[in-house]
């Protein structure tokens, strides 16, 4: 089975690093990071990813806007997007449900379980096995 390529978009450096470590060291996937929404948009459009792990609150472009851009682009509209967010209020949940994202993972997360959760959302075989 080929290695999965995941794009991580988050403005928090340390979170990017931890998530990347999880995906790479635990699941053995390939993780590409983007520090801002704008960068995420550019990378998503220019490269091919199996999934995008997207933070919602970012200073330059929030996750919703970025997701809309991704949806609008034929190149990226088919890439599944999983939101990785610290927003857990019911109102936020409702908003996410309307967006049409593949799934939502809340922060903080268990590093072991995040890969399993992602695999389940995306319908892949467990990433941990491949590691």
């Amino acid at each position: 089975m080929t290695t999965k390529r995941i794009l991580i978009v988050d403005d928090e450096e340390r979170i990017r690093e931890v998530v990347r470590a999880c995906l790479e060291d635990l699941a053995g996937w390939e993780a590409i990071v983007a520090e801002s929404g704008q960068e995420g948009l550019v990378k998503a459009a220019s490269e091919q990813f199996d999934a995008i792990l997207l933070d919602v609150s970012m200073p330059d472009m929030d996750g919703f806007t970025l997701f809309q851009h991704l949806q609008a682009n034929p190149h990226t509209c088919l890439t599944p997007v999983i939101l990785l967010t610290a927003k857990v209020l019911p109102s936020d949940r409702a908003k996410f449900a309307q967006m049409g994202v593949a799934g939502v993972i809340t922060k903080p997360f268990d590093p072991v379980k995040i890969t399993l959760e992602m695999a389940e959302i995306l319908g892949w075989e467990s990433g941990g096995v491949e590691a």
């Binding site: 931890v18 903080p108 997360f109 590093p111 072991v112």
Partner: peptide, 9 residues
């Protein structure tokens, strides 16, 4: 998130 992730790893 960072603390939990790093310690979890």
């Amino acid at each position: 998130t960072s603390i939990r992730g790093s310690l979890g790893l």
